[in-house]
Lab assay of single mutants.
Amino acid sequence: LTVHVGNVTYHFDNPEQAEEWAKRMAKKYQGQIHVKDGQFRIE
């Protein structure tokens, strides 16, 4: 699973971990989480 934050990409084996990280990053950067094809993108 991949989480994109700006132009930085993080890889996770565990979906719960990826989702948790995406939520934390979205809160930190006050962005929206977009989920597409098993990838999380924070914008």
Rank of each mutant, 00 (worst) to 15 (best):
L1I: 12
H4W: 13
P15V: 12
Q17A: 13
G31F: 12
V5R: 02
H11I: 10
T2F: 10
Y10E: 00
D13E: 10
R24D: 04
P15D: 05
W21T: 00
G6S: 05
Y10K: 02
D37I: 03
N7V: 07
Q17S: 11
R41F: 15
D13N: 12
A22M: 07
Q17V: 10
G31S: 08
F40K: 04
E19D: 04
T9W: 06
W21I: 01
M25G: 00
W21M: 03
V35H: 05
N14A: 08
E43T: 11
K23Q: 09
H11R: 10
K36N: 08
Y10C: 13
Q17L: 12
T2V: 10
K28N: 02
G31P: 01
A22Y: 04
R24L: 14
H4T: 14
A26S: 05
V3R: 00
F12A: 00
K27W: 08
G6Q: 05
E16W: 11
K27F: 10
T9M: 10
T2A: 09
Q39D: 11
V3L: 04
Q39P: 03
K27Q: 11
D13F: 07
H11V: 11
K27T: 10
G38R: 03
Q30P: 05
V3K: 01
K28R: 13
V8M: 12
V8Q: 10
I33E: 02
D37V: 02
A22E: 00
D13K: 11
N14V: 07
R24Q: 09
A18S: 01
A26R: 04
Q39I: 09
A26G: 03
Q17K: 11
H4N: 06
V3C: 07
Q17R: 10
P15F: 14
K27N: 07
G31V: 13
V3G: 01
E19T: 07
Q32D: 06
I42H: 05
R24K: 11
N7W: 11
V35M: 11
E20N: 10
G38I: 03
E43D: 08
P15K: 13
R41Y: 15
P15G: 06
G38L: 05
D13Y: 06
A18T: 01
D37G: 05
E20I: 10
E20R: 13
E43S: 07
K23T: 06
V35C: 15
W21Q: 00
L1F: 15
K23G: 04
R41C: 15
A22G: 02
V3W: 02
A18V: 04
F12G: 00
K36I: 15
E20Q: 12
H34M: 12
H11N: 06
Q39K: 06
Y10R: 05
Q30E: 06
R24F: 13
K28M: 09
V35D: 03
I42K: 03
N14Y: 08
G38N: 07
N7G: 12
H34P: 03
E43W: 09
E16F: 11
I33Q: 02
I33P: 03
K28D: 03
W21E: 01
K27L: 13
W21D: 00
